[in-house]
Design a protein around this nucleic acid. Structure first.
Length: 574
DNA sequence: GCCGTTTTCGGCCCGACTGTTTTCAGTCG
């Protein structure tokens, strides 16, 4: 082992000890020793041969032994023992500005949070503010810190990329140098995460557009700049490409740059079978110079004998065959959503009052709100004991009496316990209009265990909706492994709906799984999982994913009216 | 854990800054 590696191990031992709350002078001693070692001339072999590391100021008997062990064995039993006792994600957290060993230890001890993804989610749920030494500012600072370290991580969540894209396209459209402009790529297809932002414009003055694009205030660096294509990195860390074409080429280019690659390949194959050649500049009939004229994408599809395929569906998952037969669903729109069903109030880990939430939902045009505070096992989230529930439900009655145009359904987000049973007794469960049942603990399961746990929950007669079925947090935490096909089949057999959690970090159930649920007639509930009024606004992200899953209005539980839904809830209970 | 030494255990770098406190704890450099 070389000097540098050995020093790094010593440093890490110091950090691990610090997290464990060891004497700060002891932890510092490891850091000092690491620095001392690094500053010594020669490589580790030489140092040990020449001095045996004896009489070096800053390296005493204890640390000397550790270095000798590292040198001879290439490893340290002490280091490995320490490491085994502390989750790797906790070490990761120290990369967050403002997050040191003490704070990391606190969130781990108090909330069991062991990686950055969980930490970020916990901040969004206001779970940090109550911890000793923490407050609202600290929580915000940690969120900013997480955003900072995520900056150059390669992938971005849809909302972040979309808001950046809008900042680009606004000035471009407003400049007067472009004829048409659109966001393209995976962002236009509404993928849950995207690698970069693609912008397509048509213009008679490409040079002017390039100049404008590469000098926008949000641009950090220009990675390439040509006549028709430029690439930049934005200050937010997201990469963005701009492509300029003529206005005649625009529809073909828009289709081409929207992708997906697989969809394009399939489309080109189809064109070829019809004696046509298709690329980003046009659709060409055998050897002709001028393309088959198409004013927009719809005309391209029409020229190929297809109905219009919405961008969300262009994933080569059967959309071309369906479009040929006119069999594409009329996709659900955000305006089809009549109410919101997964909302936390001040009673558990939300921060707004029931009446405030109801008022906000009403203003947003929703006809109902399903109140779903946590059950007791979610102690970190202030899960409600039966007594608390009585008070909460009495308040719901009072709020319901206040309004004629919005209805509060009494629900709960009931924890699915380790064995698949639910976290309330039957007499309590009876009192709800509906339940969302979800897993919040014991994530370490095999696929068989997780699947059995979910299936058992779904088979419970008091389970109305299965919540965020994989528990994933996008770009940060894998969900538990689930055989989703079997879970969907269980939901179908038991008349249980499945949640599409619309929080942009979750978007869970995955859109790739939704089609099967639709085929089996399982209703999908597009739920905000809101912990405050602001959180009600994420439903649109869920609608985007529902569209990618081919859902139409009729497949979506909360596209029902309040009366229809009340009837549906009642019918589940029979 | 290291150092220095009145050789057996007490002291070890600290100030700016922030945020949470009500006199201090934690982070950063």
């Amino acid at each position: 082992m070389d000097k540098k590696t050995a020093a790094a191990v010593l440093d890490e031992i110091g950090t691990l000890l610090e997290i464990m709350g060891e004497n700060p002078f002891k932890t510092r001693a490891y850091g000092n020793a690491a620095r001392t070692l690094l500053s010594m001339p020669g490589d580790l072999d030489d140092i040990i041969r020449d001095t045996g590391l004896k009489g070096v100021k800053g390296i005493g008997e204890g640390i000397r032994e550790r270095i000798l062990e590292l040198h001879s064995n290439g490893r340290s039993a002490y280091y490995e023992e320490l490491k085994a006792g502390i989750p790797a994600g906790l070490m990761d957290m120290l990369r967050i500005p403002g997050m040191g060993p003490k704070k990391a230890k606190t969130v781990y001890d108090a909330l069991g949070i062991a990686d950055i993804g969980e930490l970020e989610y916990a901040c969004h749920e206001n779970r940090l503010v109550e911890l000793p030494g923490f407050g609202l500012k600290t929580q915000e600072k940690i969120l900013e810190g997480i955003a900072f370290i995520k900056k150059h991580s390669g992938q971005s969540l849809y909302p972040a990329a979309m808001s950046e894209a809008e900042k680009l396209i606004g000035p471009i459209l407003g400049s007067g140098t472009v004829i048409r402009a659109s966001i393209a790529g995976s962002l236009r297809r509404r993928k849950e995460t995207v690698k970069d932002i693609d912008v397509l414009v048509s213009s008679d003055d490409p040079a002017a557009v390039m100049e404008l694009f590469t000098t926008l205030p949000d641009v950090e660096t220009v990675t390439s700049r040509g006549d028709t294509k430029s690439s930049v990195i934005l200050k937010s860390g997201i990469a963005a490409d701009l492509r300029v074409v003529t206005d005649v080429q625009y529809p073909y280019a828009l289709h081409h740059f929207t992708g997906s690659k697989l969809h394009n390949t399939a489309m080109r194959g189809r064109a070829k079978d019809m004696g046509l050649k298709m690329n980003e500049y046009g659709l060409f009939r055998g050897g002709e110079e001028a393309p088959v004229p198409c004013a927009d994408e719809a005309e391209i599809f029409k020229a190929l004998g297809l109905s219009f395929i919405p961008p969300e569906l262009r994933e080569d998952m059967g959309e071309i065959a369906a479009a040929e037969k006119g069999g594409l669903p009329l996709l659900v729109e955000e305006t089809d959503i009549r109410g919101v069903l997964h909302v936390h109030s001040l009673y558990s880990d939300g921060i707004d009052e029931v009446a405030e939430l109801a008022g906000a939902a009403r203003k947003m045009g929703y006809g109902y709100l399903g109140l779903t505070d946590h059950s007791p096992s979610a102690a970190y989230a202030g899960g409600l004991k039966p007594d608390d529930l009585l008070r909460q439900q009495a308040e719901v009655d009072a709020v319901n009496a206040m309004y004629t145009d919005i209805r509060i359904f009494k629900g709960a987000e009931v924890d699915i316990l380790g064995d698949g049973s639910l976290d309330y007794a039957e007499d309590v469960l009876k009192g709800f209009d509906f339940t969302i049942c979800s897993i919040h603990s014991r994530f370490n399961m095999t696929e068989d265990e997780a699947t059995a746990r979910l299936v058992r929950a779904v088979e419970n007669p008091y389970c109305t909706i299965l919540g965020h079925p994989t528990g994933r947090l996008l770009l940060s935490r894998e969900g538990y492994p689930v055989n989703m096909k079997r879970v969907i089949e269980a939901a179908a057999a038991n008349g249980v709906a499945i949640e599409l959690n619309a929080h942009p970090l979750r978007l869970d159930i995955d859109w790739r799984e939704i089609m099967y649920a639709r085929r089996l007639g399982v209703k999908i509930a597009i739920n905000p999982d809101a912990h405050n009024i602001e959180g009600l606004k994420v439903v649109g992200y869920g609608v985007g994913i529902a569209r990618k899953g081919w859902l139409s209005k009729d497949d979506v539980l909360n596209a029902m009216t309040a009366d229809e839904l009340a009837g549906w809830f009642r019918s589940r209970r029979k």
